[in-house]
Amino acid sequence: MSEISPGLWELLLKGVWITVQLTVYSAALGAAVAFGVGLARAHRLWIVRFVAGTYFEVFRGTSALILMFWIFFVLPLGFGWQLVPMWAAVLALGLTYGAYGSEVVRGAVAAVAKGQREAGIALSFTPAQQLRKIVLPQAWPEMIPPFNNLLVELLKGTALVSIMGVADIAFGASLVRNATGQSAPVYTVILLMYFVLAAVLTRGMRVLERRAKAGIGQKQPERTFPRRSRERVPVGGESR
């Protein structure tokens, strides 16, 4: 790639840093939403379930890009709320992927054996104690592989912010393309960067999964190289 000067490389690397930040912040917001909404969807009060279920359906039906446009352009005009582009992007991504994540949380919590809750009742745990001490510790390791899929989808989703002018990797790519007039090398490099980031995320989640399983006395078969499970795939209208 002799066409790309050191200055342009620096531009791309700065873009990587922005992408990483976007991913981390959106993932944090998304995780909070996923747990909040996911647990609320199994709440014993129907009104709580209804509100959470509506959130899930609305945000699952929403295109992340459209939501981003809406937050960027409609919120300031319609409501007078002007957000820094970076945070507007985090909001759009976190709310959308949080909705997908809530399905993961709900499913994993529902998959904990019924006898575990019954044992919790028999020992007079409060519902909150049952959740904290018994259900979540067991459900958590099951959530990690689907969360990993979502995280990779989220990483890919961050590229959308370049459309709004946030200087992430994809934005850097268009600048470099304009500067060099070369498309193939730039976009190949960019795609490779995303691929490497996704691989790093996946590897990290594998480690997390192994630890989580060891923490509850389950042994995880050691694999020579991590491979993310794909039996359940994220962005689709996931349902059971």
Partner: peptide, 28 residues
Amino acid sequence: NIGMVFQQFNLFPNMKVLRNVTEAPVQV
């Protein structure tokens, strides 16, 4: 006042044996 032992044991797999026995007395 009531304790129960289940057909399928229903021990908490995320806790060691001692913790299984102590958790409820401590929490409840």
